[in-house]
Amino acid sequence: MFHYPFDPSQFSETARVWWNLFGFYLTVAILLGIAVYAALVLIPFIYSRSRKAVDEIKPGVVPGERGRNAYLAVIVVLILASFLAVFVESYISVNELASLIEEEYGVTIEQLQAGEADGALVVEVRGFQWGWTFKYPNGIESDVLYLPAGRPVIFKVTSDDVFHAFSIPDLRVKVDAIPGQVNMGWTVPQTPGTYRIQCYELCGVGHAEMISKAVVLPPELFDFWYESLGEELVVEEGG
């Protein structure tokens, strides 16, 4: 039904930042993994060749007194350094994203979190057992999510019955849908295409079929859809 992309970095601004961050985490994890597995393979060789039982367990002697404090220090520093690197990188990329949205699209992170911004499209997302409804500012209600490329979109997510989680995996959007509460999520879609929308919170028998699609259209095509269906609705209300 849908294509499954592996590298989502060009689909949306959020996807790009999270994908880069994931790449950084992966690099750190691979480096640490290489060190750990190298030790795992090499240490048995080294200690099986030399018959000196250096690390033999002796009652009453704690490991620290065996004279290997330097190794311990290296390991602790490595762990702390990797944690620190990952935290710093996360902080940097989130800040990068915030400044980019503000400079390129004129929308601040505070506005996005509040769900009110002039330059952004606000979509009300309602989850129910088992499906999604999307409501646009001009009154269109649709079960397929249409989005304009290159414009910030704010999702105001809520639920009618039980806990759901609204997610567009390829665009790196995931927001909990909780009854009686409105949660904010946002993204800037970049590449036209069709993406999967899925519920990420076990919500009942139909959870696995709680799938919809997000169609990212070029701006002029989105405007055509938005205006023609919006007009129709106004006519119906008048008559």
Partner: peptide, 20 residues
Amino acid sequence: FAAAAVALGYYLVFGENLAG
């Protein structure tokens, strides 16, 4: 390491596509 190699292979084969 074999599992890591499979993951890398998957990335090399499917990783270049735009949207599938």
